[in-house]
């Protein structure tokens, strides 16, 4: 039984209203919503793939690519915003050549934008694999990220 089947198994009463809980469970289990799992959910609930993709892209919580080896969360909460987190994010995206929500082609890095990680005193803050980095700047972000690259090797 595949993971998706395992999740679907818990929802024997098929209905459109189960769509979001199912997607959430799959994402929790797999880390993201793969094309394959979306198609499988569609067949199970009899909802066209375009509709499910439409619903899933409506919400920020769903991702469509697996996490990278190193997962970078960039805080875009108010305090971080005021202290320039938007440039940090821009620089990071430029440096890794992927947008927020995506994963680099070598699977090393993924970027996620989060609303607030409760470390406003350290703003602007990012979190890589659960490790916090305080007072990040457009310059330092590259070094921080690159240090993880070497760790991976």
């Amino acid at each position: 039984m595949t993971l998706v089947q395992h999740v679907l198994h818990k929802y024997p009463a098929v209905g459109r209203d189960n769509l979001i809980p199912i997607l959430q469970e799959i994402q929790t289990a797999e880390g993201y919503l793969s094309k394959k799992s979306i198609l499988e959910v569609g067949r199970y609930l009899d909802i066209p793939a375009s509709k499910i993709f439409g619903v899933a892209t409506f919400y920020n919580q769903f991702r469509f690519e697996p996490f990278g080896v190193n997962h970078v969360q960039v805080c875009r909460g108010t305090a971080c915003h005021v202290l320039g987190s938007s440039t940090v994010l821009q620089e990071l995206e430029k440096h890794l050549k992927v947008k927020a929500g995506q994963t680099t082609r070598d699977g090393q890095f993924s970027i996620e934008v989060v609303a607030c990680i409760g470390a406003c005193g350290l703003a602007p803050v990012i979190c890589v694999n659960g490790e916090f980095h305080a007072k990040v700047t457009a310059q330092s972000i590259k070094e921080i990220v690159d240090s993880y690259k070497t760790k991976g090797e």
Binding site: P48, S50, K51, F53, G54, T57, F58, Y59
Partner: peptide, 10 residues
């Protein structure tokens, strides 16, 4: 009855 397109994103 095809539904190959829909609103994507928000």
């Amino acid at each position: 009855g095809v539904a190959c397109i829909d609103f994507i994103n928000r």
